[in-house]
Design a protein around this nucleic acid. Sequence first.
DNA 1: AGATTATCGTTGGTGCACTAACGATATTGG
DNA 2: CCAATATCGTTAGTGCACCAACGATAATCT
Lengths: 148, 148
Amino acid sequence: MSLEETASAETRGSYNLDEQVGYILRLASQRHAAIFQEHAVLGLTPTQFSALIRLNEVRQCSQNQLGRLTSMDVATIKGVVDRLRAKELIELNPDPNDKRRALISLTEKGESLIEELYDMGHVITRETLGPLTTSEQKTFLRLLKKLA
Amino acid sequence: MSLEETASAETRGSYNLDEQVGYILRLASQRHAAIFQEHAVLGLTPTQFSALIRLNEVRQCSQNQLGRLTSMDVATIKGVVDRLRAKELIELNPDPNDKRRALISLTEKGESLIEELYDMGHVITRETLGPLTTSEQKTFLRLLKKLA
DNA sequence: AGATTATCGTTGGTGCACTAACGATATTGG
DNA sequence: CCAATATCGTTAGTGCACCAACGATAATCT
């Protein structure tokens, strides 16, 4: 990076973008996404990962329920479910009690992946929080949760 | 939300999604995005906001430079620049010394918006960090920056 | 000077995230 | 019982974020 492109410390204005929580939050998310991608199996994305983990917890639920369990919009969870189905990690069956719903569950292939996902998650978390000491990590997670 | 949809604390598996930094980071980003949108003028998005602030700092630069200054991919900054141009907040002029480049700068309309953007940014930051005490906010920002 | 290498901006593709509207089905309340 | 309301999943649109490939232009290095 050339000198002129180093972020200038407020040469103009009384505002430092580099100190704004929203801006830094985006940078941290970008870094985490990159780390995730490095370790991801089957090209799984963070949202796909979350959906699989939740599905393993609840065993079975509708699409919109899964969205709420993972904090995804109905439109977002639809795309995620579509892609997980394409990867044959989940399957949809009609709900006998509600013709609107489809019950989603893990396939055998999905089931057999869970343990590996746990390991993957731990590695990613460890690497993401790597720049912090153990005690800083605890503090950070505690405060971050308050903002979620 | 019905009881069945309350996130279950690891009924299965040795993994708690709700404690993973990536997952919480996504939630916090979602919350910040919602707060931003509430206060945004002209339908500005966080990335558009960042680009305007940086442009006001450097006065003039190329599209890719602006991308680097705001940590955006070349493809991403292109879309942001396109939309800011459509809003007539920035303008592009050919660089006399480099036929590949276009020099980007704020328009008068963009210029006149900056002070308002500073105010807007402060309000958004304050509300986003609202759940934390002042001392927690400092700690949080310090640790978050380490992860960016 | 000429070939290699780098940078500039564009395009197409994928995925996440939200809004809004829609038809179908369920639930609720008078 | 029937009308109003709610929920389910789908679709279309916008925007951010990344990758990969591309032609054009610049810079570098024999």
